[in-house]
């Protein structure tokens, strides 16, 4: 599971934004929201006749596999960098 998400935004003539988001504490803080999202996903699976366990397993795989992803986009003096570790 990803541990840290780093976001850096360099804007022309403005102070750069640098945010480090520790994933686990944020998930714990947002736990009620996470539970609601999971419940909604389960209902959607039942409505569309998709295996709940398979769907949740696949979603968990996607979240786990995010570790190592990096997006670095620059245009002129504007730059956005997102790294998931």
């Amino acid at each position: 599971m990803p541990q840290l998400v780093t976001v850096k935004v360099n804007r022309p003539d403005r102070r750069p934004i640098r945010v480090w988001v520790p994933v686990l504490p944020v998930v714990l803080v947002l736990f009620p929201v996470v539970v609601l999202v999971v419940l909604a996903a389960i209902v959607a699976c039942v409505v569309f006749r998709i295996g709940v366990v398979r769907a949740l397993g696949a979603a968990w795989r996607v979240i786990s596999a995010l570790r190592g992803a990096r997006f670095d986009i620059e245009q002129g003096r504007l730059a956005v960098f997102v790294a998931i570790r």
């Binding site: 569309f48 006749r49 998709i50 295996g51 398979r54 769907a55 696949a58 979603a59 795989r61 996607v62 786990s64 596999a65 995010l66 570790r67 190592g68 992803a69 990096r70 997006f71 670095d72 986009i73 620059e74 245009q75 002129g76």
Partner: peptide, 26 residues
């Protein structure tokens, strides 16, 4: 006239997981 650069690194594991997720589409 403005230089732009995109540098994306995606884990292959994410692609594999995406394939498994896509298999669930009704």
């Amino acid at each position: 006239g403005e230089p732009s650069r995109v540098n994306v690194r995606v884990p292959l594991q994410l692609l594999r997981a995406g394939v498994r997720l896509a298999a669930l589409v009704p």
